[in-house]
Amino acid sequence: MLSDTDPKEETGPGGHTEAVDDALTNKGDALRNDSPANDSPVADMVRFDQVVKRFGDHTVLDQLDFGLRRGERVTLIGPSGSGKTTILRLLMTLERVTEGTIHVDGEPFSHMPGGRDGLVPANEKYLRERRRRIGMVFQQFNLFPNMKVLENVTEAPVHVLGLSRDEAAERGRELLDLVGLADKCDAHPTQLSGGQQQRVAIARALAMRPDILLLDEVTSALDPELVAGVLDVLRDIALSTDITMLCVTHEMGFARDVSDRVMMFDHGHVLEAGPPDQLFEAPEHTRTREFLSAVL
């Protein structure tokens, strides 16, 4: 059992982290995206099986099946209230599934081994071990206002990954440089513009070297002139790393640039999915057409 999963682990998280490091130390070469071919293109990085999420008697996700391949960039679109945020929050373990299971890299994520059926709902300890692999950037940034910018970025590497302060600070500076904020290390979050805060939040999420990055409408709370700066940073990260990305966005230009696949959601179901060109140019469903004409 163990020997089966070991080799996969080696080419998995390790590969990603190195890619992030490469991009950090070697930003000039960042544009090359011809990293050695994916070793396991078939295996899903994330797998939702028959996931149901209810709040009270309001069913938000209804037997949802969907997967993300390793390194894939997927954008979720869909009307307000269709459950896009809920999907991200389930994956970040901020919510628990009502029914169904989530697997990450072949490992049960919403559940853990045990019980008569082989799986029981995951407890907090199990989740804490696993959620490290996932990073999330929120619409409202959620920086820690009581910490300086650099401390925001080093907090988790020091206290979760066990890096030394110096090591974490050095990496933190590199990441802040990556998002164009090298000169703001000692600033307090409240002294930054929304766009700058969001870029710090991106650096903070990347500092944990996640395999999967979740982005929930990360530019929706920003003044229009600040949106481009944040999207440029994300484009850069998408191009220079092979991190798996799941984004919710209304920025269709950005979605087109970075996505391998766009998924249209409605009423807790995937209405249709496909490469951005196909979905944006020739959507199959009238619902999708209506939605796109409303947001474009």
């Binding site: 970040m92 804490r128 990073g135 929120f138 959620n142 820690f144 206002p145 907090e155 988790a156």
Partner: peptide, 26 residues
């Protein structure tokens, strides 16, 4: 704000650290 808890969870910070470093100072 609830977002502070959520950001701390998303970073996998241990519960004691969330209290000491994030919630209580604020």
């Amino acid at each position: 704000p609830q977002g502070q808890w959520e950001a701390a969870v998303a970073l996998s910070l241990p519960r004691g650290r969330v209290w000491r470093a994030v919630i209580l100072p604020q």
